[in-house]
């Protein structure tokens, strides 16, 4: 279990992580989603005690990471693929780290086997491809048989087979009751792997919800309506939970009402419709919109149609 409270990190005038609080539960995969530069890696590094928070706390299994007597058995982390000396072989790299905790060579060979590195374990890691480096990083994370895994962009550089392997591994480890916290900038990857999702943008948590809830909340069904009487239809359709946007005269984008409801309303009021098209935005698009907005907050005034729904799942989980 990872508990983060009011965690902030500032580098000079730039705020990388801005007072985030969340809990990562054991027994499930929690996806940490956000565009590059949103603060995912910085947050993970602060949990691992590699970066000192400007304020706030992060604990793993009840204690700050550095306070554990056998840190590698508490958390295994993949924070960057090549946190390894290029002149050392994969096996020697693992043996050196294992030695700190008196982890036997048997376990080193075990994780080499698990990650499919047996063929290259005695070769210098400098020649590794990004994918092999990633596998070695995962082997390093698994070394202490940890209760919690923190994986930063674990599928980066992996081939499709590798991606599937990481997905199954994450699910398997969570199935064993471990805490699995993995970051990605790919919504589709998180949707397939995670049970719970944390979305971060510009250093702030934008959503914290079970994946299904997040998908329901974020994949809004919108309807495109073309009518000569747009103003009147907009007035009539407006109610709680309905958002209407208009990009050009005579064209409405309605969120919160489905096509039949709009059609019936128009018929009742005698409004002519030229077009009535239901549109389903993809999860990917919803995520893009959610995180893009968090960027806009900084550069200009907030847009007129801020996604109120985006904030809705926050704190609503559990």
């Amino acid at each position: 279990m990872i508990e983060v409270k009011g965690l902030s990190k500032r580098y000079g005038p730039k705020t990388a992580v801005d007072g985030v609080s969340f809990t990562v539960q054991p027994g499930m995969v929690t996806g940490f989603l956000g565009p590059n530069g949103a603060g995912k890696s910085t947050t993970m590094r602060m949990i691992m005690g590699l970066d000192r928070p400007t304020s706030g706390t992060a604990t793993v299994n009840g204690k700050p990471y550095a306070a554990h007597r056998a840190p590698l058995t508490e958390v295994g982390a993949l924070l960057e693929a090549k946190a390894i000396h290029p002149g050392r072989s994969a096996r020697n790299h693992l043996l050196a780290l294992a030695a700190t905790h008196r982890i036997p060579a048997r376990r080193v060979d075990e994780v080499i086997d698990m990650t499919g590195l047996t063929q290259v374990a005695r070769k210098r890691a400098g020649g590794f491809s990004l994918g092999m480096g990633q596998r070695l990083g995962i082997a390093t994370a698994l070394l202490g048989d940890p209760r919690t895994l923190i994986l930063d962009e674990p599928v980066n550089g992996l081939d499709p087979e590798g991606v599937l392997w990481v997905r199954n591994l994450a699910r398997y480890l969570a199935g064993e009751g471990r805490t699995v916290f993995l970051s990605s900038h790919l919504m589709s990857e998180v949707a397939l792997t995670a049970d719970h999702v944390l979305v971060i943008g510009r250093g702030k948590i934008l959503a914290d919800a079970p994946v299904n809830t997040f998908i329901d909340a974020e994949t809004q069904k919108t309807v495109l309506v073309r009518t000569p009487d747009a103003t009147r239809l907009a007035e009539l359709a407006t109610s709680d939970g309905v958002t209407i946007a208009s990009d050009e005269p005579g064209l409405l984008t309605v969120t919160g009402l489905d096509a039949p409801a709009i059609g019936e309303l128009a018929a009742r009021e005698g409004i002519v419709l030229h077009e009535l098209t239901p549109q389903t935005s993809t999860l990917e698009a919803a995520y893009m919109a959610l995180t893009a907005d968090s960027v806009e907050y900084r550069t200009g005034e907030p847009g007129a149609d801020t996604p109120a729904e985006a904030a809705a799942p926050e704190g609503a989980n559990r």
Binding site: L50, P71, E80, A83, I84, H93, L97
Partner: peptide, 19 residues
């Protein structure tokens, strides 16, 4: 310094976080 130039230091400090 070779730990800093290679990134190994992150692995090292993850194993021994008291530094």
């Amino acid at each position: 310094t070779n730990e800093y130039s290679s990134g190994m230091i992150r692995s090292t400090l993850a194993a021994t976080p008291t530094r």
